[in-house]
Design a protein around this nucleic acid. Structure first.
Length: 422
DNA sequence: TCTGGGGTCCTAGGACCC
DNA sequence: TCTGGGGTCCTAGGACCC
C-alpha cells in the first residue's frame, strides 16, 4: 500500500475569505464574480441552495439575486492570495511535505505519519486552519491523489464523514466509487464524460474497472493515468517543489468591442506593461512574446477574426517597454479593419530565471532600463496602478472591464485595512 | 450557455535535417 | 527525385483544471 495522501480543500473559498472580514456576509447567500464581473465563480452554501451554478452569467440570474437578496461581490485576488499564505502556515506543522495545488487546495503527504489516527490528525489540521483564518475546510485521505480528490468531494457532499473522508479502506472506497458520477471525477471533463457514458460507464467504479486499451482509445495517456490512480496505483507524486512556470499571460475581455487599432494598441500597451511587471515580480525573463486578439466567438452571426503573432525578444527580457515594442509590431501586422474586437492578450513563454539569463552579444544599456522599470513598479505600488504609464497606453480606458463591487484590500493595502472603532 | 482569466499537458501535422 | 527511417522543432488545437 502506498503512502497516504490527503487533500485539504477550503469550502467556498472566495466567499469564505470575504466573510472573514465582513460578518454581514455570514449566513446569507453570497456570490463572487469573475474578473469582468461576468459570471459567478464562487457561491456560498445559501447561494447554491437558491440554484446559482458555477459560471452562471450574472445578467441571467438578476431575478434570483433580487428575489433572494443574494449579496454580489467582485473578486479580490489580493485578499484571496494573502489569506492562502495564512491557510498554508496553519497546515504546515501537520506534515513534512505538501504541495500547494491551487489557491484553495493543498495536497499533504502523510508518509511517515501512518502510525497516527490520520482522521483525527486531519481534523486537528482542519481546526487549526479554522482557528487562524476562520475558513472552513474538508479533507480527503487516500492512497493516490485522484482518490484523495474524490475522498474530499465525498467529505464535502456526505455529512456522514463530518468533513474528513478516509478512503484507504477498500470497502469504504468501493462504496463511494460506485455512487460517484463519472463526470464528477477529477480529470474527466464534459467531452470525456459524454464518450464514457456512450460506453455505459456512469460511475467512478466503472471507470476504474475499464480496460486500459479502451481508455486509450477515447482519451490519451492522461485518462490511463487517472484509471491507475483510481485503482490505488499512484501515477502522480505530491510535488513539494514548485515547478518552473512555462508561461505567463495577461488577457482581458473588453467591456465594449473595439474597432480601431489605436484603442486596441492602448489596451495591449497596458497588458504589455503588466506582463513585464509580473515577470519582474517572479524574477523571470521571457524569450517569446505572443500578442493575440479576436472577435466574440459566441456571436457566430458576426464576421469573425482571430489573430496571434509570436515574436522573439533578443536578449530575453522583462522590460515592459521592450515587450510593448514587440507586441506593437505584432498588432500592426495582424490588424484588419472592420471587426469588433472583444478580447486581447499578451502571452510570455520560454521563461528563465533572471539570474540564469543567457547573455546576448549586444545588450545595450539594460541596467538603465532595469532602473526605469523598478522605478515604475515603485510609483505604481505607492500611488496605485497606472500612476506611471507609457504614452501609448493612453489615459482613456473606455474599453476597460467592469469591477463595480470589489471588496477593499483588507490585508494588503494599508489604507484599506478595516478600522475598529471603540 | 448572452461565457473570466490564467494555467498545464497531450496530440497531430508540417518543416527540416541527417 | 515516383525516395527510408528517424529525429527535432514548431504550431495549432483540444481537453481539462481552478
Amino acid at each position: 500500500m502506498s503512502a497516504p495522501v490527503a487533500l485539504i480543500d477550503c469550502n467556498n473559498y472566495y466567499v469564505s475569505c470575504e466573510r472573514a472580514f465582513d460578518a454581514s456576509l455570514v449566513g446569507v447567500p453570497v456570490i463572487v464574480l469573475s474578473n469582468n464581473d461576468g459570471c459567478a465563480i464562487a457561491r456560498s452554501a445559501e447561494a447554491k441552495a437558491q440554484g446559482v451554478k458555477t459560471g452562471d452569467p450574472i445578467h441571467l440570474i438578476q431575478g434570483k439575486v433580487k428575489a433572494h437578496g443574494i449579496r454580489v461581490l467582485s473578486s479580490n485576488y489580493a485578499l484571496y492570495g494573502d489569506m492562502q499564505r495564512r491557510v498554508v502556515a496553519a497546515i504546515q506543522p501537520f506534515a513534512r511535505d505538501f504541495e500547494i495545488y491551487s489557491i484553495d487546495k493543498t495536497f499533504v503527504d502523510f508518509a511517515g505519519f501512518e502510525h497516527l489516527d490520520l482522521v483525527a490528525h486531519a481534523r486537528e489540521m482542519s481546526a487549526q486552519v479554522r482557528e487562524w483564518t476562520t475558513i472552513p475546510t474538508c479533507v480527503g485521505i487516500a492512497p493516490t491523489k485522484a482518490l484523495a480528490k474524490l475522498a474530499n468531494a465525498a467529505a464535502k457532499k456526505n455529512p456522514l464523514f463530518e468533513g474528513v473522508a478516509d478512503l484507504r479502506d477498500e470497502t469504504t472506497r468501493n462504496w463511494v466509487l460506485d455512487r460517484f458520477a463519472v463526470g464528477d471525477v477529477w480529470g474527466v471533463g464534459r467531452a470525456t464524460a459524454t464518450k464514457l457514458q456512450g460506453l455505459g460507464i456512469r460511475t467512478a467504479g466503472q471507470l476504474r474497472d475499464m480496460a486500459m486499451k479502451q481508455a486509450r482509445g477515447i482519451g490519451t495517456v492522461v485518462l490511463e493515468r487517472l484509471i491507475a490512480e483510481l485503482r490505488g496505483v499512484p501515477a502522480a507524486a505530491v510535488e513539494t517543489v514548485e515547478p518552473q512556470r512555462k508561461g505567463m499571460a495577461v488577457t482581458r475581455s473588453f467591456g465594449t468591442p473595439v474597432a480601431d487599432i489605436d484603442t486596441l494598441m492602448g489596451a495591449v500597451a497596458q497588458y504589455a506593461m503588466r506582463a513585464g511587471e509580473k515577470l519582474r515580480q517572479h524574477g523571470l525573463v521571457a524569450r517569446r512574446v505572443t500578442v493575440s486578439f479576436h472577435t466574440n466567438p459566441h456571436k457566430p452571426e458576426r464576421p469573425q477574426y482571430s489573430a496571434t503573432r509570436t515574436l522573439s525578444a533578443q536578449p530575453m527580457t522583462n522590460d515592459g517597454l521592450v515587450i510593448l515594442g514587440l507586441a506593437r509590431r505584432g498588432v500592426e501586422s495582424a490588424w484588419r479593419e472592420g471587426y469588433g474586437i472583444t478580447k486581447a492578450g499578451i502571452m510570455l513563454e520560454d521563461l528563465v530565471e533572471e539570474r540564469l539569463r543567457p547573455l546576448a552579444l549586444f545588450e545595450g544599456d539594460t541596467e538603465k532600463r532595469a532602473r526605469l522599470m523598478s522605478a515604475m513598479d515603485e510609483v505604481n505600488g505607492r500611488f496605485g496602478k497606472f500612476a506611471a504609464v507609457p504614452a501609448t497606453q493612453g489615459f482613456k480606458r473606455d474599453w476597460a472591464a467592469r469591477s463595480d463591487a470589489r471588496s477593499p484590500s483588507y490585508t494588503t493595502r494599508i489604507a484599506e485595512v478595516p478600522a475598529v472603532r471603540a
